[in-house]
Design a protein around this nucleic acid. Structure first.
Lengths: 226, 226
DNA sequence: CGCGGGCGTCAAGGATCCGTCAAGGACGCC
DNA sequence: GGCGTCCTTGACGGATCCTTGACGCCCGCG
């Protein structure tokens, strides 16, 4: 099923949400302030973020803005204020939906499902399995086969390959790659790209010195060619 | 601006919504029952549908289902019932958002904007392909094809070509070109333009000495001619 | 006719970027 | 604690690319 990041500083509510969500088949990560939320989002790549606007360290709007700087993950906002201007602010900042406390749990679940479904829908071109020469990349099962035998990838290697394969045939800029794999704040760590592109090539390419699938576009980024 | 289809059977509310929406820059079509709503949606292709669930001829859920059979136009639902199970049903049927009466008009406007923005976002990079004779410039994928084969450009070459192509048919002044490619503070480095226009012509033009696409306007700047 | 400015061409550096190898160090597992 | 995996970081050739300078051409003008 899908993965949800719950951001809430009230331990009781966060706990209750976690139990209910897990009972509904979600996997759950929790964060109790904005900084941890951003770190967790970058690390876990949740399918949806459930964000309480009342956080101790930074405003919820800032969290939304920071997330929207690098990801389109759906954000469902949770707020105590019933008639707050912050509804408008949150939606304009890039939130996808808004739930006011108190809320019915089944309504919240429906909104989360709707948010995930909306986000998944435009990804039409996504087939779960992409074949490129001797390579078979199964995006759903997170597996790669080369000449029919499985290749073991580390989490970071897989993450980078996944971004490239989902954008196969088109250039992925260094910046985009760094942000999607390592998260915001890593936009300039271009060295990571060199290290990991080399590792992927060593594991996936027939001739790592002359790669046919993971192609460098000097000065710009990388492309996965099928 | 965008076009909204308002589906409501209360003449007073529909009228008030129409006035407010038009004042906010929307163009508006109204329908007072489900059958007319479906016909109007098929005819006008609105950018967003604002749907009141309480309709005389059919249930709002059925309207959503019928729309979703053929279009992904965002649907924002309007309902009087505050704690109704119909919220969940509407969202699961394919609605994008939900507003409960009574509602603040600026919240409704924000939700409509958010719905349209969400729907438009994935389509952004589309249609960014410019064809000029034997040249094909794909602005989204950052690729250039000449007679069907890809041409490798350096980052600076691409950046300059991109500015010219985005302003195709219009003169781009030397100053503007320098600032957009090299940044502010390079307004007088006209020599760069000569070097890079020459490189682009060598890579893209059939006869670099007599360019047909990257044309110099002496003393002023350059034009990309399709 | 001589001169100068704008433009195009070519080539040479120096800076930057890329690929590679390898050494710490964090973390989980036994 | 010992071990293995993985991420991060550094160093270093080699390739690529940006910048800069020199030079020739064309054309208008004095």
């Amino acid at each position: 099923m899908s993965h949800v990041l719950v951001v809430d500083d009230e331990p009781g509510l966060a706990h209750a949400l976690g139990i209910t969500l897990r009972a509904s088949g979600w996997t759950v990560t929790t964060a109790d302030d904005g900084a941890h939320a951003l770190a967790a989002a970058a690390h876990h790549h949740p399918d949806v973020v459930l964000l309480d606007l009342g956080l101790p360290d930074m405003s919820g709007i800032d969290v939304i803005t920071a997330l929207r700087a690098w990801t389109r993950v759906p954000i469902v906002v949770l707020s105590a204020r019933q008639h707050g201007e912050d509804k408008v602010d949150a939606l304009d900042a890039g939130a996808d939906d808004y739930v006011t406390k108190p809320f019915a749990m089944n309504e919240l679940l429906a909104r989360l499902r709707a948010a995930v479904r909306r986000a998944a829908a435009p990804a039409d071109g996504d087939e779960a399995v992409v074949v490129a020469g001797a390579l078979t990349v199964d995006l759903a099962r997170r597996r790669v086969l080369r000449d029919g035998t499985e290749v073991r990838l580390t989490p970071t290697e897989w993450s980078m390959l996944e971004v490239l394969v989902r954008n196969r045939g088109r250039l992925v800029s260094r910046r985009q790659l760094l942000q999607e794999v390592w998260g915001p704040g890593y936009s300039d760590e271009t060295h990571y790209l060199r290290v990991y592109s080399a590792q992927l090539r060593r594991k996936l390419e027939d001739d790592p010195a002359h790669p046919r699938h993971i192609v460098t576009q000097p000065g710009m980024g990388y492309v996965f060619e099928a």
